[in-house]
Simulated scan of single mutants.
Amino acid sequence: MPKILFVCHGNICRSPMAEFVMKKMVAELQDGAGNDAAGLECAESRAAEKNCADFEIASAATSTEEIGNPVYPPARRMLERHGIDCRGKTARQMTLRDYEYYDYIVLMDRNNLRNLRWILPPAIYERECAGGGKVSLLMDWTGNSRDVADPWYTGDFEATWNDVNEGCRAMLTSLRNGQA
């Protein structure tokens, strides 16, 4: 069972969007409904059962600024517009225990990577900065290594929605194909 933690600065916009988008994509696979937007389907075979196994998906922040706050209203409205309910989600900060527990720590931008230095021990942080560990940028999964657009500064929640969907779709495809 892959365990994925999406991480952004405050855990009120990008990382909860990624958390709930990925949960929806995985649920659609498990229901056999497929997802035209993701281009994914679950076949009724033993191999497909493995590919559609349960995932554990969550999100967190690198900062303490928004702890306890709900998903930012424009981000929540964007999710709702696409049939995704994020009620009950509140911001929390990532911990070292999260790093140890999750298989994939998926960051929204390079600033999030720099901020991990306050969460991870120096040796682990250095190793993750060198690459090849469990930390990645979401857009790395698309083959186009760049930051997810930050709507807190741009106000462009549509661009963030598009980035999150593209990144989650690519990550899920890679995980299902055993390429991660």
Rank of each mutant, 00 (worst) to 15 (best):
76 R>K: 11
32 G>A: 04
106 V>Y: 05
111 N>D: 11
87 R>W: 11
165 N>C: 13
20 F>A: 04
15 S>D: 03
69 N>D: 07
11 N>Y: 07
146 R>Q: 11
133 G>I: 03
97 R>E: 12
117 R>H: 13
129 C>E: 02
48 A>E: 12
87 R>P: 03
31 D>T: 15
40 L>W: 09
178 G>I: 08
65 E>T: 01
38 A>C: 15
151 P>W: 02
139 M>F: 11
83 G>K: 06
150 D>W: 06
67 I>M: 02
24 K>H: 11
126 E>G: 10
172 L>F: 14
12 I>T: 11
158 E>V: 14
53 A>V: 15
52 C>M: 09
159 A>I: 11
147 D>G: 06
159 A>P: 07
42 C>E: 10
129 C>F: 00
53 A>P: 05
155 G>A: 05
133 G>P: 07
61 A>I: 03
40 L>P: 05
119 I>H: 01
21 V>D: 02
78 M>W: 00
148 V>C: 14
143 G>H: 05
29 L>T: 08
136 S>Y: 10
88 G>C: 00
113 L>W: 03
154 T>F: 01
68 G>V: 01
110 R>V: 14
156 D>K: 08
40 L>C: 11
20 F>W: 04
97 R>M: 13
15 S>F: 03
154 T>W: 03
117 R>A: 15
147 D>L: 09
104 Y>A: 13
77 R>Q: 14
128 E>R: 03
147 D>C: 09
54 D>V: 14
97 R>N: 13
84 I>W: 03
11 N>M: 06
137 L>K: 07
19 E>P: 02
4 I>P: 00
159 A>W: 07
27 A>H: 10
175 L>D: 06
137 L>E: 05
151 P>S: 11
173 T>L: 13
110 R>W: 08
34 G>N: 04
168 C>P: 07
16 P>Y: 02
58 A>V: 04
2 P>F: 01
117 R>L: 12
82 H>Y: 12
92 R>N: 02
148 V>S: 06
28 E>K: 14
144 N>Q: 14
172 L>W: 11
89 K>H: 15
4 I>M: 01
115 N>P: 04
77 R>W: 03
63 S>W: 02
27 A>Q: 12
118 W>L: 10
112 N>K: 01
128 E>V: 00
33 A>S: 15
162 N>D: 14
147 D>E: 12
41 E>N: 12
85 D>C: 08
43 A>N: 10
123 A>F: 08
6 F>R: 02
176 R>L: 06
137 L>S: 10
58 A>P: 03
141 W>F: 14
105 I>N: 05
112 N>M: 01
88 G>E: 00
105 I>K: 09
82 H>K: 09
132 G>C: 04
36 D>Q: 12
4 I>L: 09
110 R>A: 14
